[in-house]
Design a protein around this nucleic acid. Structure first.
Lengths: 173, 173
DNA sequence: TTAATATCGTTTCAATGCTAACGATTATGA
DNA sequence: TCATAATCGTTAGCATTGAAACGATATTAA
């Protein structure tokens, strides 16, 4: 079995991780998988930090949330997107997509278009104004992306992408 | 320079990644760092999937959100926690912590305690009922953690934790 | 001491987000 | 054909979330 100190193998533990391990090992819980805990904790913390940084440094100027931006991003890439696909892509409910569509429609960044072949389906389309916003915003966003992972080498970036990709695929995320 | 197909080195790309790359390389944007895009995209997607899975499969029974759970978790580990630390730990604003405290106080899972040395500071403490909820919930949550990363070997789990930890540290997340 | 500044938690308000219920549309099957 | 089921987006109702404004408390400086 691994002892606790082997966690340091790939880099000094974060203070929060040390605290947690110290407390949990005192608790009456046996056979905890410390490695899983570390992966999940650091995964969510990194993602949350990423989101906060982007909203603060890039998206706040245009009053956009992370979800709104990923919504516009999909429209930018795909021209016309079904709401169902938007929900799946952002990992939010279809009700949320409906609300965000309303907000962005009010800002004149997109509009709805009913599918004539199947009138149950609604597509969302980027307006010219929306396209302009994305053309201004995306380069800044991309700068942020590069910055966030700049402490990793290209090889390490490929490695972590591959590992995350397997997690996503295995869990149908 | 890397050509596009080198992305597959560490596992077949997700359909969404392929679409994005195909579209972006047509767009008039030069010198995009595709590796950064993959890391950021997969990082957020994995975290979002993780959160949704846990809320659906573990936390819904008790009507708790991910943030509420991490809030209670901190109280469980730390007994008495300042609201400021709770906000920092969860990566949310102090307003959010204030609201969550209200909700969990209503459920009698925690209570506020004003610091007598500095009456501006408020600490939050777990109630006995709150402790019972955590003792029931945490083992289930941990099962979920183990399950989510079960497709990775222990060595890979250590590796990804280490890489994420460096991202967190370098960005002060 | 006292005035100015800083810090902390709460409140306000709008946006985000989910579940469940709903109405409209399409598909299925007797 | 026509009733039933399935699927889609919206709505209703509520909890979560953050920025900004606010009051209360503490610190600093004159």
């Amino acid at each position: 079995m691994d002892d606790i100190y082997s966690f340091d193998e790939y880099g000094e533990l974060l203070p929060e991780e040390k605290d947690t391990i110290n407390q949990l090992t005192k608790a009456p819980i046996e056979s905890l998988n410390m490695h899983s805990i570390s992966v999940v904790t650091n995964l969510y913390r990194a993602a949350q930090g990423l989101r906060n940084k982007m909203e603060r440094e890039v998206l706040a100027k245009h009053g956009l949330s992370w979800t709104s931006f990923s919504f516009l991003y999909d429209l930018w890439i795909w021209e016309s997107v079904e709401t169902k696909k938007l929900a799946l892509s952002a990992g939010v409910s279809k009700a949320t997509i409906s609300n965000i569509t309303n907000t962005l429609e009010r800002k004149e960044l997109c509009y709805r278009k009913v599918d004539n072949r199947d009138r149950r389906i609604t597509c969302v389309v980027l307006t010219d104004k929306g396209r302009k916003v994305m053309e201004e915003l995306y380069p800044r966003f991309h700068e942020g992306e590069v910055e966030v992972v700049s402490s990793l080498s290209v090889e390490e970036q490929k490695l972590i992408s591959g590992l995350l990709r397997r997690v996503i695929r295995e869990n149908d995320f």
